[in-house]
Design a protein around this nucleic acid. Sequence first.
DNA 1: CACTTGTTTCAGAAAATTGTGAAGTTAAGG
DNA 2: CCTTAACTTCACAATTTTCTGAAACAAGTG
Lengths: 170, 170
Amino acid sequence: MTDTAETVADARERDEDAVSRFVERFASELTEAGMQRMASRVFAALLVSDTGSLTSAEIAERLRISPAAVSGAIRYLSQVDMVVREREPGTRRDRYRLFDSVWYESFTRRDQVLIRFRNTLVEGVEALGPGTPAGSRVAETVEFFEFLHEEMQGMLDRWEVYKAKRGAGS
Amino acid sequence: MTDTAETVADARERDEDAVSRFVERFASELTEAGMQRMASRVFAALLVSDTGSLTSAEIAERLRISPAAVSGAIRYLSQVDMVVREREPGTRRDRYRLFDSVWYESFTRRDQVLIRFRNTLVEGVEALGPGTPAGSRVAETVEFFEFLHEEMQGMLDRWEVYKAKRGAGS
DNA sequence: CACTTGTTTCAGAAAATTGTGAAGTTAAGG
DNA sequence: CCTTAACTTCACAATTTTCTGAAACAAGTG
């Protein structure tokens, strides 16, 4: 379908074509980094929306995907706390909104993965024997992940401080 | 020492079954986190070897995979600097060895991903217009990734210090 | 309570990924 | 050089993943 007639907007209208290219490109990078394809695209679409929120229909239209695909992507994004669902009052339509602290949440989640790794590795040390060369190599890896876990929290705290300061500053 | 009696503390033989279970389990976690399946398994196999190195044939045998699969996995692991190839002197066999600083390298690599993200996001800000709500949301994301990039280096430095200190201490 | 609108589930077609055997390439050793 | 051992590449079959349309489901509304 061709786009609606140009309503006379007051000022600079954004170049939807360039925005769409950005959405696809960023989504594709997220996908390469391990996120599901549709989840990446939906997330990127939300990121470039002015309100930081869209309805299912809006997402489906902009991304040219089926409602079913939207549903699946949202399920994932909710699970990993990147998006919240909210009912649009007075309608029967849901709105999906970016978490304010998406990146914070997303890294916290990554931290959980570190913990799982670490626990598996501890079992590895046992199986190998702590005194063996392989055992002590794995033990060092355990230490690395524990170190990382501790650093992570500090880092996210520093980000919050940084963000608050900058927000207050301008 | 010809004594055949084994004390608990003295048990020297590792339980290959338990080790193998650990290999598969850790590999599977790496895979979930985004690494190729065979690369994960080969990496885990190297991790539990006492010398930290194996030949192609050894890997193929332990993992029950074809030489072709080993080849593919090694190609990936070399590319991401987790493994180095070295020719076994006097033979025509290659040995694949874990980088001493695998995790360091691997996180440095992750840092490269951050930079790519950041660059894409900067283009996004342009497309959206820096003044728009969406534009400033993406701009904040740029800031987050820049922040992360800086933290990363500091963190890895602190790990090196920590490791050196602990190595000297014990 | 039937109707309408919006979301989710599910079976299956389509596409992408993966691992293999076999052929090909390289280089050591006689 | 010729043989042979080791590794790599390639085409293909098998598996897995992904996305869709259709149907089921849910929840406001008249």
